[in-house]
Amino acid sequence: MSIDVPVILTVSSFLVFFGLWGVLRHRRDLMRILLALQLIFLGSLFNFSMGSALFYEASGLILSLFIACLTGIQTVASLALFLLYFQKHDHLMTDRAEMMKG
């Protein structure tokens, strides 16, 4: 039994698939969309890290660090924007967000 490339690709593709599924399934709720987007980022991070370990190259881990950093920025920035939106409209439903200003 060994850790092969197809297994790694399968796991990361399933993570990305779950993320996309979450975005489509909860497309009316902004916070659930945010959680699903984090799953997509986690899938790409997993892919880069495992590729880095498989091919003996540290660049994948550097990219993983950048992806983790980007995920944190994305979460905090979007939550701050959601908070502003919630204070104004008292909901976070995307199908009622047609009144957003640019």
Partner: peptide
């Protein structure tokens, strides 16, 4: 996979973002 620094960086960033998320969820 011997990438302990990246794993701790991932954990700390996730902990921070989840704390903000939970604070927001409580609001």
């Amino acid at each position: 996979l011997n990438a302990k620094f990246v794993s701790f960086a991932l954990l700390s960033m996730t902990a921070a973002s989840m704390l903000v998320f939970l604070m927001f969820a409580l609001i």
